[in-house]
Write a protein that binds this DNA or RNA. Sequence first.
DNA 1: CCGCATCCGGGGCGATACTG
DNA 2: CAGTATCGCCCCGGATGCGG
Lengths: 212, 212
Amino acid sequence: MRSYHQYCAVAKALDVIGDRWTLLIVRELSLRGASRYTDLRRGLPGIATNLLADRLRELEQAGIVAREDAPPPVATALFSLTERGEALVPVLHELGLWGVRFMTEGPAPDDEFRSRWLAWPAETFLTDNEPDAPPLTIEFDTGDEPMLARVQDGRVQVGPGRSDSPDLRVIGDPYPVLGLLSGDLDLDEARAAGVSFEGPAAALERVRPNRS
Amino acid sequence: MRSYHQYCAVAKALDVIGDRWTLLIVRELSLRGASRYTDLRRGLPGIATNLLADRLRELEQAGIVAREDAPPPVATALFSLTERGEALVPVLHELGLWGVRFMTEGPAPDDEFRSRWLAWPAETFLTDNEPDAPPLTIEFDTGDEPMLARVQDGRVQVGPGRSDSPDLRVIGDPYPVLGLLSGDLDLDEARAAGVSFEGPAAALERVRPNRS
DNA sequence: CCGCATCCGGGGCGATACTG
DNA sequence: CAGTATCGCCCCGGATGCGG
């Protein structure tokens, strides 16, 4: 990207990650870990394939992304964040905190969604209110793949995966499920918005933030 | 800006402030408070005047910037951040923390500098290590206008201004002065890089962070 | 199928000139 | 002082091609 030519830390940061799509690629890598080109493409609906290739090259040059050749069985390139790339996670976090205000009206008609994007709001807004209670497993079915939240020892960890016997399964559209996670909706409101539960919905009270 | 059409908080944030120059305009407004068009232009070297006008319009529409007509003596428009705009300060802060790594080699040959940009690193990196000591005033002369740091009651506040009798005056190029603020340079190293002091340079020890 | 490279149309961006 | 107008240019988006 063209430099701003300003000796200021914010401008220097934007010189490197200010290009279109760049921070979203970092988001995807931070959510997915080491990823193949095609998986990144699927997680970034709307990106042109040449742009993804260009950005990955630029990010590699900037020391934000590392490209490794996967071992023979896979024989494909894997992209992952370097330490410098991981250091961008707080930037993404603050951007997300600022951006949630634009989510409360629901998705636009042509908005795409990937269930992995639930990991950030879930880990950000949920807290384990009963750290001494036994582990809890909650599955969220909102889109292309199920997400699994493990609640244990005061921590909430969220990642892709399914469970044969989760303590609770939450099924619904992204919008009301996100409202549930952020505390904007309570259980009855979520149900009215089409969210269904398999298992004791009350288990959510262990992790849900106080309604602001 | 063209939307990413992704129902994700980071993408929604970038839909609004991802355009070129946008976050730098917010930076400038957060450093200066209510500002006139021409002052913004001076604080944003390199911006085209039509782009500044466009961005201010877009920022106003997005509820980030408010335009007020100043009272008769000035009779000009003033731009300031709304509450939603001030909420972007943590984003700028994290961007700055990530971007300082690109400042440690010094400015590029054609980099511009404005002394107000010192306010962020000064308030970010300096701390009052002796909150019970009497107030301390340090003037920094690094560029277009002097900056004044007031150290008092455990706080460090930095803004434009000069003092007739500061406890200490620090004069030098932005690069070594920034090194001094961030803890990358000690007093002797800064002196070797052309920084001069009027008053007891040791007073800086009250506020300088530990060298990492 | 994966991981791009190439081509091309449109629009955002940058620089300058101009105006009330 | 505070913008508007104009005009290249290059980045971006979308489509297609293509070697491994």
